[in-house]
C-alpha cells in the first residue's frame, strides 16, 4: 500500500494536462498537425495556450485528448465497421505469444487473461487441441444487459468495452458471461511506468483500476489507428485472422495475407462457441483438423503450475 499511485497526483504536468489541455483540448488537437510540422521529433517542448490566455511551453507527450473526449469517442466506436476474429485451431501451437502481448499492452497480472489459450477436447477421445479464447464480442452480449450503470456496453462497431471510470465493481457481468471472458482487479493492479500520469484510455483499459472489471477489447485502440490487435500481431503461427465483416475481408496476423471472410468461414466449416446460448459471437473458430503440432499431455500451465485435477476440461 505504500507505493500506491494515484492518477490525481498533483505534478506540474498534471496541472497543465488538467487545465491547459482539458479545456482547450479540442483546439490543441486541431492544431496538432500544424504543431507537428514545425516541431521535429527530438524536441520535447511545444507551445500551448492555457485557460488564462498565456502561452507556455509544455512536454509534447502531454498533447492528449482529455478524459471526457476520450470517453465519448471510445463509447461511440468506429463508424461503418463490424470487427470479427477468426481463430484457426489447426495452427495454434500454444506459443502463448498472444497472451503475453495482451497482458503487456493492457497492464495485466500473469493470472489475468483477456485472452486465454485453453487445452480442450470436444468429446472424450476426440483429441486435445489448443483453443485461444478472447472475449467473443457478442452481438447479443449477456454481460452488458445486466450492468446496472452502463459501464459495459456494445459500440456500433460491435466491440464490447468496459469503462473502469464508471464500473462499481458489482461483478454481475462476470456472473453473466458464459465464456468466463472477464477478469476483476481484486487488488491494486499492476502499474507500469507512466501509468500515474496517464489519462484513462477506455479502448486500452489502461491504467487498470482496483475494484473494477477488465476484459478483452479487440484492441480497440489499435483498430482506431488502423492496426491489427496486439494478440493477432504477436502470433508466430498464423492462428489469427482479423478484419471487418462489412468489408467481408480478414487479414492474417502473421502472414498479413487478406482473404474473403465468407469464403474462409464456409470453406472450413467455421463455428462459434456455445451458439446454443444465443449470444451471437463475433469470434469464429476453424476446426482443429490436420493440426500442425503435437499435443503434449500434462503440460504446465501459463503460470508454470500443474492444472489441478478433478474438474471438466
Amino acid at each position: 500500500m505504500s507505493k500506491k499511485i494515484t492518477p490525481e497526483a498533483t505534478s506540474r504536468r498534471n496541472f497543465l494536462k488538467k487545465f491547459g489541455i482539458s479545456v482547450g483540448g479540442a483546439t490543441a488537437v486541431t492544431s496538432l498537425g500544424l504543431l507537428s510540422s514545425c516541431v521535429s521529433d527530438d524536441e520535447e517542448k511545444v507551445p500551448m495556450l492555457t485557460t488564462d490566455g498565456k502561452v507556455i511551453n509544455s512536454d509534447k507527450s502531454t498533447l492528449k485528448l482529455n478524459l471526457n473526449e476520450m470517453q465519448k469517442r471510445s463509447r461511440e466506436g468506429l463508424s461503418g465497421k463490424k470487427f470479427v476474429m477468426v481463430i484457426d485451431l489447426a495452427k495454434c501451437k500454444n506459443a502463448r505469444k498472444c497472451m503475453s502481448a495482451c497482458q503487456g499492452a493492457h497492464h495485466l497480472k500473469p493470472e489475468q487473461h483477456h485472452i486465454n489459450v485453453l487445452q480442450t477436447e470436444n468429446a472424450e477421445g476426440t483429441g486435445f487441441y489448443y483453443q485461444p479464447k478472447p472475449c467473443m464480442q457478442c452481438d447479443n452480449p449477456p454481460c452488458t444487459k445486466v450492468c446496472p450503470v452502463d459501464a459495459t456496453f456494445k459500440r456500433k462497431d460491435g466491440i464490447v468495452l468496459i469503462d473502469n471510470e464508471r464500473c462499481i465493481g458489482c461483478r454481475f457481468c462476470i456472473a453473466a458471461c458464459p465464456y468466463s471472458a472477464r477478469v476483476f482487479n481484486w487488488s491494486e493492479p499492476k502499474y507500469y511506468e507512466g501509468d500515474e500520469n496517464a489519462i484513462y484510455d477506455m479502448e486500452l483499459n489502461v491504467p487498470q483500476k482496483k475494484g473494477t472489471v477488465s476484459k478483452c477489447l479487440f484492441s480497440a485502440d489499435r483498430l482506431r489507428i488502423g492496426k491489427l490487435p496486439y494478440c493477432v500481431s504477436a502470433c508466430p503461427n498464423g492462428t489469427y485472422w482479423f478484419g471487418d465483416a462489412n468489408e467481408d475481408a480478414v487479414t492474417n496476423g502473421t502472414s498479413k495475407e487478406t482473404v474473403r471472410l465468407s469464403n474462409l468461414l464456409s470453406d472450413n466449416g467455421a463455428y462459434t462457441l456455445l451458439p446454443e446460448l444465443g449470444t451471437k459471437p463475433s469470434v469464429y473458430y476453424l476446426p482443429p483438423k490436420d493440426r500442425m503440432f503435437e499435443y503434449k499431455a500434462g503440460e504446465l500451465n501459463y503460470l508454470g503450475e500443474e492444472e489441478p485435477k478433478g474438474h471438466r476440461s
Binding site: V146, C147, P148, R166, G211
Partner: peptide, 26 residues
C-alpha cells in the same frame, strides 16, 4: 460490502439502467 467500488454507489442513480436486475432490486 461486496462492491469493488463502494465509493461509486451514486452511479446507480446517476447512470442507472433499467435493463439491469440490480436496479430492480435496489
Amino acid at each position: 460490502a461486496d462492491m469493488g467500488r463502494p465509493d461509486r454507489i451514486l452511479n446507480l442513480f446517476m447512470h442507472g439502467r433499467f435493463q439491469s436486475p440490480i436496479i430492480w432490486d435496489v
